[in-house]
């Protein structure tokens, strides 16, 4: 009895197979649909996505100085570059860059460099913001974790990081103020 009962019926086998198939398909769709809300709930919530933008006053930052501000829980490097640094950054031929990007495309005003201060390798914060920090062989930033070196435009020049430091969305709200985000 146990052997015959489950697998086959004397007649109508095709219909039952089709029926079972459709039902199984429905169950599959249902289980998939149930999984989705759980996964989605782990994505950033709406209040997180709507997090405030950050206003930064640039007036106190003298030429050659840098400040670090917080935006979306990340450090943002804001540097008032010297003419020498700008010149260095623009003199580099594209062919020497691992992630070729012209310095002009990375800034809105020549002297103000605004970047997300997170190494594109594995997420450490590079050194180079403080005057006493080591700036690495390219006079920009140097990540102490695995030795990635960035130049005065925040571009990757040496080490394991694959990309240049990222530029956040920002806009100048006046000559000396920016809003990030």
């Amino acid at each position: 009895m146990a052997e015959t009962a489950g697998a086959t019926a004397s007649d109508g086998t095709p219909r039952r197979d089709f029926l079972t198939l459709v039902t199984t398909a429905f169950v599959g769709v249902g289980v998939g649909a149930v999984a989705w809300p759980f996964i989605a709930s782990m994505q950033p919530a709406r209040d997180v996505l709507a997090l405030a933008s950050t206003d930064v006053d640039l007036a106190p930052v003298a030429e050659g100085q840098a400040i670090t501000v917080m935006w979306r829980g990340k450090p943002i490097f804001v540097r008032n570059r010297t003419a020498k640094e700008i010149e260095e950054a623009r003199a580099v031929p594209m062919s020497q860059l691992k992630d070729p990007q012209a310095d002009q495309t990375r800034v809105q005003k020549d002297n103000w460099l605004v970047m997300i201060g997170i190494c594109t390798h594995l997420g450490c914060v590079p050194l180079g913001q403080k005057a006493t920090d080591t700036k690495g062989p390219y006079d920009g930033w140097f990540c102490p974790c695995h030795g990635s070196a960035y130049d005065t435009s925040g571009r990757i020049r040496q080490g394991p990081a694959p990309r240049n430091l990222e530029i956040p969305p920002y806009a100048f709200t006046s000559d000396t103020k920016i809003r990030i985000g």
């Binding site: 489950g6 029926l19 459709v22």
Partner: peptide, 14 residues
Amino acid sequence: GLAYAVKRRVWADV
């Protein structure tokens, strides 16, 4: 409806 149909089929020989 499908589950009930399947159940009926399974139980048909009992």
